[in-house]
């Protein structure tokens, strides 16, 4: 098999029967309860790949609050705590302060992180808690059946904004990543996606950086937003949901780094 170099990464030219991808060992081999095409599953996989590659499986405690990913501990083969709706970062603070050498991450939806848990989000980051926050922004309340979220775009129909989100009476979509990026405790803030293979690779890189920062004890909180989909809540096919993301949503939630550490990893 010959080797070639692409994008600075060593690749192998594949034969037809070569295994190109395998589920990470720490992603438990059971059927996921997520709807087909839901971004949660992809983020789970990337997250576990990163933790495995950084050899952090034995050191990590994850916190999943209420939301579609409340059962993340069924799939992620690491120690986990399930938190009350909105309180994941408070739980994370409690753990990190008594075990500062452990790797701690939260995995939260937009209702969780940017509505009911806004105070915890801001103050955890303002204290610069040395944790990784993974924020799945799918613009809707998935678990409870598709109600408007703080992140829902203007005019978008949900079960609690049937005529489309009216910003006059229902407020504006909250760009919480931009908001918290001005806090001194925010160390690394980035907005990523899982719509394409390339986007997934970028997300993986971002996650890896965030966990390395944490283990190096650098700076403060790392905040990884993933602008994701909810085909069921959006009443779309997975493909349509991806197209909507690419064509409209990313115009509002622009992808890319929002705040990078001065001496961060490139």
């Amino acid at each position: 098999m010959s080797e070639l170099i692409s994008e600075g990464v060593q690749c192998k030219l594949l034969n037809s029967m070569d295994k190109v991808w395998d589920r990470p060992d720490s992603l438990i081999d059971v059927p996921l309860h997520y709807c087909p095409g839901c971004g949660h599953s992809v983020v789970h996989r990337v997250l576990m790949e990163v933790l495995e590659e950084l050899e952090l499986i034995e050191n990590t405690i994850g916190i999943a609050p209420v939301g579609c990913s409340v059962l993340a501990y069924f799939y992620l083969d690491i120690d986990m705590q399930e938190a009350a709706h909105g309180r994941a970062t408070a739980v994370a603070t409690g753990i990190k302060r008594v075990m500062p050498n452990k790797t701690i991450f939260t995995y939260q939806g937009d209702g969780d992180l940017a509505a009911i848990g806004t105070a915890e989000t801001i103050h955890t980051i303002n204290r610069g808690e040395n944790i990784v926050m993974i924020f799945i922004n799918n613009g809707i309340y998935g678990m409870t059946g598709g109600q408007m979220a703080p992140t829902t775009l203007p005019g978008v129909r949900t079960s609690t904004s049937v005529d489309g989100r009216d910003v006059e009476s229902q407020g504006h979509p909250l760009k919480i990543a931009d908001m918290i990026s001005i806090l001194p405790g925010a160390y690394y803030v980035t907005r990523q996606a899982v719509t394409t293979a390339k986007a997934v690779r970028k997300l993986k890189k971002a996650l890896k950086k965030a966990f390395i920062y944490q283990m190096n004890g650098e700076g403060g909180t790392s905040f990884i937003e993933v602008v994701s989909n909810c085909p069921s809540g959006w009443k779309m096919t997975p493909l349509e949901s991806n197209e909507w993301l690419e064509n409209d949503i990313f115009d509002f939630y622009e992808l890319g780094d929002i705040k990078v550490p001065k001496k961060g990893i490139k």
Partner: peptide, 15 residues
């Protein structure tokens, strides 16, 4: 807040 405080206790206790 006390809401955050009790959930911090939850985390530490879980540890």
């Amino acid at each position: 807040s006390e809401v955050a405080a009790i959930n911090m206790v939850y985390g530490a206790s879980g540890a």
